[in-house]
Design a protein around this nucleic acid. Structure first.
Lengths: 119, 119
DNA sequence: TGTGAACATAGACGTATGTCGAAGCCAGAG
DNA sequence: CTCTGGCTTCGACATACGTCTATGTTCACA
């Protein structure tokens, strides 16, 4: 524990993987992808994400979404996690900070869960 | 039509939700839905799930998927979690136990992440 | 320049989670 | 019945996680 490990703030948002039903994921793919699912795996984070995602232009000021039943620092903490997972990006505009969803990542996850018509 | 359902600690997520971009989730919806994402939020579990999902007929014997770098009891533990989340169902056939994906749940999650063309 | 508002960071604390080895259960073969 | 192989459960442990309060930082405006 010596060097400050830097967390990814840039989206890994590649066409990361095929549909889960197509072929099994490699250990590496699983690591990356699981991180995204994990980010949405908390009720508070999921609500925050859906609040941002359902806002006009899919972006929202923190002050507009902060009412989720936990303290303000906790909200900030969760938004940071979502950002680190590449699901949101943030931008400061004067007094306020806006969070916006990364559509490519959303699409990638959708693809991952796509289930072919074959039954 | 209706067959005896097995016990789950997490309720089925059939009617669970609209797309995340459509409207914000209620606290209750978020709770249910987050549980599913959480289940896929671990690399080992995600690999196990993709192994089952990519097998013929989307089902596989434990012995076919157990090679994910952790001990066998740990594999069993993770499969149980996936089952509790409603993502897999299991069935014993003689000596072996088979796990199968629940397609409806997969589809529900896909819908959740669907991104409208609203750009 | 000072003050207040909006967010972020730091540190602490209790609980949940992932992992293992050992032991238990169940079904098939002798 | 006994033995053996496949899988689950049990008990224990270290770490990660979510939450809080207190404190920082950055901006707008008088």
């Amino acid at each position: 524990m010596s060097k400050p490990e830097e967390k990814r703030t840039a989206p890994p948002a590649q066409p990361c993987c095929p549909a889960l039903t197509e072929r099994e994921l490699t250990a590496e793919e699983a690591e990356t992808t699981a991180a995204m699912f994990k980010a949405l795996g908390d009720p508070v984070r999921l609500r925050l994400f859906s609040k941002v995602a359902s806002h006009p232009d899919r972006e929202a000021c923190v002050c507009d979404i902060a009412d989720v039943g936990v303290s303000q620092p906790t909200v900030s903490h969760h938004l940071k996690k979502l950002k680190e997972a590449g699901l949101l990006v943030s931008e400061r505009r004067g007094t306020w900070v806006y969070y916006r969803v990364e559509p490519s990542v959303l699409a990638a996850m959708g693809t991952l869960l796509a289930v072919p018509a074959a039954a």
